[in-house]
Design a binder for these strands. Structure first.
Lengths: 246, 246
DNA sequence: TATTTAATGTGTAAATTAAACACATTATTG
DNA sequence: CAATAATGTGTTTAATTTACACATTAAATA
């Protein structure tokens, strides 16, 4: 609750007091987790943000965060928050980095651990009950609350690196996808244009795609073939993946 | 002090009480930093360890750690600990990962942030006043206290990755080194043998080595040429570095 | 229904990078 | 002065990456 995204102002004030007394009286530091939830939709890479309700950052967007419970594993806290916010549980989730400058949070000393997750906007249809929660095109993410812009930038960079070593991208796509979908995803994540023939060649040579012998439906042009990712085969031989310099 | 490496038993007991009361009474989690200090000597990659003085881990070795002060930036805490233990300040230091399972520390809930640093054993001659502090060949690091084995393994893996992207290795060598020294370093870090001609070719082609027109002294064989690393030139064009699959 | 449109689907050649591999040279040691 | 143990050096082959163009298909439109 320290990070304040879904709390009432009253709760925030209380938390502020608690933390400030800690800072003065003991050797204590509050610990939170922030989740950077990437999704892919309309050929754009998006990130899930919530409107900050701290006065200091009124109108700004922030990451989904919460305090870690004292009897809760750090990883478990990240999964809990992801589930709380999106209803999702069976997704890729990875610790990225920890941010701990003294004044990063206005409510007191809060060190936060950033976790990155990739979810499938189309497939999972997460329940956004809270209308303060929205998907943002990463190109428009420029001025987040707290130090969340820095955290976001770090996570995006890490995603760009990781996606070149492991086929994480498939977690962002629907189960059935065309090669154009896949290439759009990579272009959106890496922010570059890629050669279509070389792209296809590379993925076919990896031999992780299963041809479904189905075609796209309802596209306003020649439909492409649909594929699914062979997760079993991939798990068997995890190794360095495609390497595009950037 | 929670991690207990340089404290008296009395201090440890006190800390234990403090943390246990926290865990029971409030939403608090203690935060520490552990430093994984790599060095290179006698053609071996080494890590600096201290003997644990917690009874539970009597006789075992552990990493250098300490609590983060409430008014201290996380990065600053890592530099402080490194300086306290070794006297060094102007070295490469990087956050690796945060470890936060509930029962990782016997004294209570302590989440720790691991930082990795690379120091130059020959050049800096750090003052090991405490004779419970020793350099260990990484090959012999097998059974550390707490979850420090896991932390160490993670850091070594990260070092292996990083060293293939950035010339961190030079921080481990003396200012003047031979190409044999350099290759020994890479072989020690990566745990593989490399082809001498290809290795030299790769480094010369990167054009970061400055030929000092000096030769090794006091070696029991034909002396090699000495070089230094061109840090200025490297800083100007940071980019992806050598890439050896592993 | 024929034409246009906008995408899919495919192969090869050149350039770059990585890997394999052997012998002459030099200083030290005995 | 002979033996030793290391340094120093190039070329060839294989593998990977990059650049690049045209026929095909289905939908949309005239």
């Amino acid at each position: 609750m320290i990070t304040g995204q879904k709390t009432t102002p009253t709760k925030n004030i209380k938390t502020l007091q608690v933390i400030q007394s800690e800072v003065e009286n003991s050797n204590r530091i509050a610990l939170s987790v922030d989740c950077i939830i990437f999704g892919f939709d309309e050929a754009k890479l998006k990130v899930l943000l919530i409107r900050s309700d701290l006065k200091k950052y009124a109108g700004k967007w922030s990451l989904l965060g919460d305090l870690v419970f004292p009897n809760e594993d750090l990883d478990a806290a990240a999964y809990r928050i992801l589930k709380q916010r999106t209803g999702l549980s069976d997704v890729y989730l990875e610790q990225v980095s920890t941010f701990g400058t003294v004044n990063r949070h206005p409510a007191g000393r809060v060190v936060t651990v950033a976790y990155c997750s990739l979810i499938n906007v189309q497939h999972h249809k997460l329940n956004i009950l809270d209308n303060e929660l929205h998907w943002h095109d990463i190109k428009n993410v420029t001025d987040l609350a707290f130090d969340h812009q820095q955290i976001f930038d770090t996570c995006l960079q890490q995603l760009q690196k990781r996606v070149q070593e492991h086929p994480l991208g498939f977690n962002l796509l629907p189960k059935k996808f065309s090669l154009r979908d896949l290439q759009n995803l990579y272009e959106a994540i890496l922010g570059i244009k890629m050669d279509r023939r070389n792209f296809r060649k590379k993925f076919f040579s990896m031999d992780f795609l299963i041809d479904l012998n189905e075609m796209e439906q309802d596209v306003p042009h020649r439909p492409g073939k649909l594929y699914k990712f062979n997760f079993e085969k991939y798990e068997k031989r995890k190794k360095k993946w495609i390497g595009i310099d950037f």
